[in-house]
Design a protein around this nucleic acid. Structure first.
Length: 264
DNA sequence: TACAATGTTTTAAG
DNA sequence: CCTTAAAACATTGT
């Protein structure tokens, strides 16, 4: 489920636990989530410590502890963070549980496409510090964007937008929303874009990221019906602008919803 | 039963 | 070495 706005929302779900002493750490160390993580180190370092700050970067989350511990979480396709004052929870998919006096910080991830990382160091570890510029940051200028496009001339626009090394945080529904607003067909190749179309793609990319964060990032609000988002999964859905039928195709290996009458 | 799922990573080919 | 496409990953729900 989570793309950059949802990730921001989930990050905040643990906020009630920040500053609280962690009295117990429970993990499912056999799951794929821990493939890049020394679980013994994670458990011993987090037990007794407090998480003091958190941030997101695209689909990545980082929690910092008061003992120079850095906890990286990626939600994958089905992950969520939750805080509960109830001591009962479904253990099946709660692969990381941080227990405090005030409540539990839970990371649920049924499909195990997520990832947990941990490091102890003065400075943020390379897997965090080395992430590419965020789409809404100052560094993500039009010329930066355009330089990356020049290197991917043969790529279709849909898989292009899903490249996390260029557009951190953009996922399947956001890519469709961006292309629909830019009026570009998902199968178009980068090299076919006119200067105007390139510019439009850049602007709509930033626009969708900004408003998605605004609407979902704080309180999981609903998107207006003017967004493709509300129509994309309905069978027989229609384009909110043209009222013509939406189409679903596989592009770049992912289900893609678009409006052939509107996007070219 | 077979397939799809709001995501990456790996492998292979060009 | 770089770009591009497809398969693999784990599990559930339709």
């Amino acid at each position: 489920m989570p793309e950059l706005a949802e990730v921001e929302y989930f990050r905040k779900q643990w906020s009630p636990g920040l500053g609280q002493r962690i009295i117990r750490v429970t993990t499912h160390p056999w799951t794929r989530l821990y493939r890049d993580c020394d679980v013994v180190e994670l458990v011993s370092a987090l037990a007794g410590s407090r998480l003091v700050a958190s941030e997101t970067h695209g689909k990545q989350m980082l929690f910092r502890s008061n003992r120079s511990g850095w906890l990286g979480i990626h939600l994958g396709m089905t992950g969520e963070l939750r805080f509960t004052e109830d001591s009962e929870y479904d253990d099946r998919y709660a692969h990381l549980v941080l227990e405090t006096k005030k409540g539990l910080m839970l990371f649920n991830n049924p499909r195990q496409f997520g990832r947990i990382r941990f490091a102890t160091s003065k400075k943020a570890p390379e897997w965090w510090a080395g992430l590419p510029p965020q789409v809404l940051s100052k560094k993500f200028s039009y010329s930066f964007f355009s330089t990356h496009l020049d290197r991917r001339k043969g790529t279709q626009l849909k898989p292009l937008l899903l490249m996390q090394e260029i557009f951190p945080g953009v996922g399947n529904w956001m890519a469709d929303e961006i292309l629909w607003r830019a009026r570009l067909a998902p199968t178009r190749r980068v090299k076919s874009l006119s200067d105007y179309e390139r510019k439009t793609l850049y602007e709509q990319l930033r626009w969708v990221c900004r408003y998605a964060l605004r609407i979902v990032g704080d309180d999981w609000g609903d998107f207006p019906n003017s967004w493709l988002f509300n129509h994309r999964w309905k069978d027989g859905g229609t384009c909110p602008l043209t009222e013509k039928p939406l189409q679903r195709d596989t592009v770049g290996g992912r289900t893609t919803c678009w409006s052939p009458a509107w996007q070219h």
